[in-house]
Design a binder for these strands. Structure first.
Length: 275
DNA sequence: CACTCTCCCTGAAAGC
DNA sequence: TGCTTTCAGGGAGAGT
């Protein structure tokens, strides 16, 4: 579920917790992808949230005592904000109770999410943070940068887009959507991409991700209540999940690349070498 | 080093 | 209908 637009939408929803004080921390499932550190209790109980932001798909909840909770949502994780008379649901693994009856719950069916607790100034010492490439929405993302990373690569562009060490934030759905928008075949190898194509990919990254964020943002009720709905962007998918459907008489197909599904329209998305 | 594959986990959907 | 198999939006770590 959570790629960059979902994470962005989530942190926008979480901002109502700014300045609120944690009065209790409950860990219902310690072992997620990694164990939730035991010291989460004493490091944030009684503390107020200073700010909430993200690095790529990592959510950072920063407290005023210089502690940051880092949350990665994995495949199926989501954060819910609950009010006083909430009911704990299946797969709620961590709950932060705030003054004023707010509760923040991490719910994750598949337990691929993780929660880390670090001193704020040491966030970048975490290997999973420091090894990230440039954020997909950063204006530092340039064709020169991408070219430098991929001009010798024999990996297909679809997989390159999923590589968080190159561009951070794109996931499996938006990778297909971005390449369709750029009219580039997901099979094209990194070293075969032309400068124009790299520029086009960057444009499509911004366009698709921003549009996705806009659609989530337009359904405020969805994320304010954190009811698990995906927002409205699904109906905007052009190719993802649409194998067998047609775009102006050209068929969309599904292939498997590196164990992940890719959807594309071969007639519209050309490989440079096949022309 | 660069690339590829498996695995972590649960449940919905597809297959039989 | 009910049982079995496949697959899912992420990413680390092992293997080649």
């Amino acid at each position: 579920m959570p790629e960059l637009p979902e994470v962005e939408t989530t942190i926008n929803g979480l901002r109502i917790l700014k300045n609120k004080k944690v009065i209790k921390v409950k860990v219902y499932t310690k072992k997620l992808r990694y164990n939730i550190p035991d010291y989460i209790h004493k490091t944030i109980t009684g503390q107020r949230i200073k700010e909430i932001n993200r690095i790529a798909k990592y959510i950072l909840i920063k407290f005023k005592n210089n502690i940051t909770i880092i949350i990665h949502l994995g495949m199926s994780g989501r954060l819910k904000i609950l009010k006083k008379n909430f009911i704990k649901e299946k797969h709620d693994h961590l709950m932060l109770y705030f003054r004023d009856n707010y509760v923040l719950a991490l719910n994750d069916t598949r337990k691929f999410s993780f929660v880390d607790v670090v001193e704020t100034e040491n966030i970048c010492n975490k290997k999973y943070i420091s090894s990230l490439g440039i954020d997909a929405l950063s204006n530092k993302l340039s064709a020169d940068y991408i070219y430098g990373k991929i001009h010798k690569s024999v990996v297909p562009i679809k997989q390159i887009l999923l590589n968080q060490h190159i561009v951070a934030g794109i996931g499996n759905i938006y990778a297909s959507e971005i390449l369709f928008d750029a009219k580039i075949s997901p099979l094209t190898l990194g070293r075969d991409l032309l400068a124009d194509q790299i520029n086009q990919i960057i444009k499509s990254i911004k366009k698709i991700l921003k549009k996705a964020i806009r659609y989530k943002g337009s359904s405020i009720r969805d994320y304010r209540s954190f009811d698990g709905t995906l927002g409205n962007f699904q109906s905007n998918f052009k190719v993802y999940g649409k194998a067998g459907k047609k775009i102006s008489s050209y068929e969309i197909i599904k292939i498997i690349q590196y164990g992940r599904t890719t959807y594309f329209c071969p007639k519209i998305q050309k490989e440079q070498n096949s022309n």
